[in-house]
Nucleic acid binder design. Structure first.
Lengths: 191, 191
DNA sequence: CTGGTGCATGACACCAAGTGACATCACCTC
DNA sequence: GAGGTGATGTCACTTGGTGTCATGCACCAG
């Protein structure tokens, strides 16, 4: 079933994402139609919407994997770790996951920053991510308010570091940037 | 020019907002078309889009006024106030502004919570609001990172209190809820 | 009073996002 | 080889959103 499907080229979703990213980068998000994306991927508009709920979603497929990575790291943290330390434990697998995607992350970030609709989607994905992180803290026994706060602070740390990472040209530095951003956050909150 | 325009009923924008809110409340956001809204307001679809950039924006007109209120309060704070205290100084005029809009805020909140598109718009408006608050702190001489953090923390305090306010039935309690939420935030961050 | 200008709206055509319904055709199973 | 499954194509349709031109009242100049 996964092998030997000769009727269609494999990995339709990946081809659509690749085609979409290229076109958004070449001519902008607004100027690119779904029909164009599908055509470049050798598919039809209708098939695009079978793989992605809407035109924006093609750029936000990785968010599920980011969630899983982060959760995995939090759950691997020692049971007696402070809430923010547990959140930060998720930075290890997350940095590893992004290590080989620096080039793509740069292009993607440029596309998103250039379009308000995409920024809206980015914000709601991050909001959902904060909710998931909060849930992991609640399961560790962290009280409600502390979990909410730690999750949002952790997300701010992540966002700042990630933003710096895509602006620089050192793919391997993400882990270090997480630590720097976290240290800044600690120094500011302790003041 | 503002008076005596007898050709059209006045306050087209207000009528459109009222019609939209009613229809969204009666039959849901998705099930309501822009043509319906315009018809109930005695206007046409084209005129709706002359007053609001898109269908969602009709529910987010007040955000500019919220910004101005909050800024006004921050700028009225004593020059030596701590960053978070300056942010909290904005809660006074904000609570006053919302005092007579509790009923509308409840309906509006229910509509937004029921629709992901509207939540996206809400999040980006809050994000923009955080940027404005941060700017006010920078003008007070607060350093970059502290301003970013204080703005986001202040926004979290606002969101939590506002969320409780629309769930309860005591329009006058908003100011007290701001204080309670702020106190909780302080106790959590100092732990 | 007359004619011109400005401005909000109406009317109409159009594009693109997104959806529902049905057809197609390779592959798998029995 | 008969039938089921699943991903895709085809087509018609609704709706958000925009460009363009026409309309008609208010206001102003003379």
């Amino acid at each position: 079933m996964l092998r030997g499907m000769s009727r269609w080229e494999p990995d339709a979703a990946s081809r659509l994402m690749k085609a979409a990213t290229e076109l958004f980068d070449e001519q902008g998000y607004d100027a690119t139609t779904v029909a164009e994306i599908a055509e470049r991927a050798g598919l039809t508009k209708r098939t695009f919407f079978r793989h992605y709920a809407d035109k924006r979603e093609v750029l936000f497929n990785g968010s599920g994997q980011l969630e899983r990575c982060w959760l995995e790291g939090i759950e691997a943290a020692p049971a007696d770790a402070e809430p923010l330390a547990a959140v930060a434990a998720g930075f290890d697998p997350v940095a590893e996951m992004f290590a080989e995607r620096h080039a793509f992350a740069r292009v993607r970030s440029r596309i998103v920053q250039a379009n308000p609709e995409l920024q809206e989607r980015e914000l709601i994905k991050l909001h959902k991510l904060a909710g998931v992180v909060k849930g992991a803290l609640l399961r560790r026994g962290v009280p409600e308010h502390a979990a909410t706060l730690a999750a949002h602070v952790g997300l701010a740390v992540f966002s700042v570091a990630f933003g710096h990472w895509v602006e620089q040209n050192d793919p391997a530095r993400l882990r270090a940037l997480f630590d720097e951003s976290l240290a800044q956050m600690r120094s500011v909150t302790s003041a």
